[in-house]
Amino acid sequence: MADITSQIPASARSALGSGPRGPKPRRRLSPGNIMLYGTLFVVSVYYLLPLWVMIMTSLKGMPEIRMGNIFAPPVEVTFQPWVKAWSEACTGLNCDGLSRGFWNSVQILIPSVFFSIIVASINGYALVNWRFKGSDIFFTILIFGSFIPYQIMLYPIVILLREMGIYGTLWGLVLVHTIFGMPILTLLFRNYFSSLPEELFKAARVDGAGFWGIYFRIMLPMSLPIFVVAIILQVTGIWNDFLFGVVYTKPELYPMTVQLNNIVNSVQGVKEYNVNMAATLLTGLVPLIVYFASGKLFVRGIAAGAVKG
């Protein structure tokens, strides 16, 4: 990962890569320092407690949960809730657990991430290096479009997908993710490609490379870090989607988030909090792994989208 970060151009890295710029550090144990680290510690507890509770609850049996202390670690560790959440938990009449949602999400995720990134990276490249009349207008519409509440486009897209014959299918949802991922990803790639020296592009044209030649031979090999950022952004974003999953797929194709919500918030039966928390953790696991594995690149992804947007 360190190797990838080192390839990021200095301009793009400076926003976060540079060290703290604040006033000079003070003595180790001054009252100010105790206040500072004390506050940070309390804040960290607020952020970490839910994760702690999720894990602990998911490892307890129901009798132990009913005894009370939500924060206490399990006296008797059990993985039964995890097994049940994965393969037995019920949504409505189906009782085959979250595994179905997980595999649905995987099937949605892979093509969605692939297509949205391919389309957006070519887009960003064309916008920077092959500008044509009107290209900036479409880009502006795209960026403003990303602020429009999805609700206003929900139904027209239903009609669109129905006309194309892919309403209620995984491919319909893939198309929706490609469309709604386009603004932020195009912005990301456009900003990145415009930070590369323009003369490189000119040199390649003098060398006789065309639109695709320059994209694949010159731009792609130089852009691995930004592709990693885009993949992080899309994997977490698409995995966490709920609304599009509900609207554009059928129950047997529901992604994991939708199925999770249906399991936990179903009104029938006795609430099994340990199973619920195991299911919640399972659903959060993919973005959490991506987050912890990617480190600073995740931060860069959200900052790239935000600060320049």
């Binding site: 839910p50 939500i70 966490n240 909090y273 991506v290």
Partner: peptide, 14 residues
């Protein structure tokens, strides 16, 4: 990095 669904369910429990 977590979804609103996960967030909502954890805090519902807490």
């Amino acid at each position: 990095a977590l979804s609103f669904i996960v967030t909502g369910l954890v805090w519902q429990w807490l």
